[in-house]
């Protein structure tokens, strides 16, 4: 009998007399401790899995630089697409009548790299046939939206600077943004 007295004492941490006189309090507080225990268990397990998921996201990426210079505005003739920077930086430099802008080479459908077809004057994606005009506007195939434009500006030395960390989407009206093109 004395055993019965001490065991709940230890587990609930209340005074010996109390628990002995009111056994239902013991049960109730035991249940509440159980709840706390389970809550703690779920919390810790959840936290553990959250940390595991966070583990999948690297902090440091070993990818090429996102900002690069592409030369002077005069280097680009008007109404032409420069494909020099496609290979290294994944960007086309396009000059139309009044501006120069940098288009992303990532097809907005599934991320293939379209090809510039000068004769038909369009970008054509080999994967699923999306077509984009020189401006980057989509007009055929499954692409849901135009190509993205990168931030473009003039550096201090007069060269054009393309910053890939900022991109501008047509469907959000961001091509109006003066950072998305360079007036010439």
């Amino acid at each position: 009998m004395s055993d019965k007295k001490t065991i709940p004492n230890a587990s609930i941490g209340s005074s010996a007399e109390n628990s002995y006189k009111k056994p239902e309090t013991t049960r109730r507080s035991f249940l509440s401790w159980l709840t706390v225990g389970w809550a703690a268990y779920i919390g810790v397990t959840g936290g553990f899995f959250t940390v595991i998921i966070r583990f999948l996201f690297p902090n440091v990426l070993f990818e090429p630089p996102q900002t690069f210079k592409i030369g002077y505005p005069e280097d680009f003739s008007s109404n032409s697409v420069d494909i020099k920077y496609k290979k290294q930086f994944n960007a086309w430099v396009v000059r139309d009548e009044e501006s120069i802008f940098a288009l992303s080479t990532v097809c907005t459908h599934l991320g293939c790299t379209p090809n510039w077809l000068p004769v038909e004057s369009k970008f054509k994606c080999p994967c699923h046939g999306s077509g984009f005009r020189m401006t980057g506007i989509h007009f055929e195939g499954p692409a849901p939206r135009p190509l993205e434009r990168f931030k473009i500006s003039l550096a201090n030395d007069g060269q054009i600077l393309v910053d890939k960390t900022k991109s501008y989407k047509w469907e959000k009206g961001e091509w109006e943004n003066p950072e998305s093109f360079l007036k010439v």
């Binding site: 996201f57 990426l61 070993f62």
Partner: peptide, 17 residues
């Protein structure tokens, strides 16, 4: 840089990671 594809391929595009 934070979506499910990033977690799957460990980067912004298919590369070393």
């Amino acid at each position: 840089g934070s979506d499910v594809r990033f977690a799957l391929i460990g980067g912004r595009f298919v590369g070393e990671a």
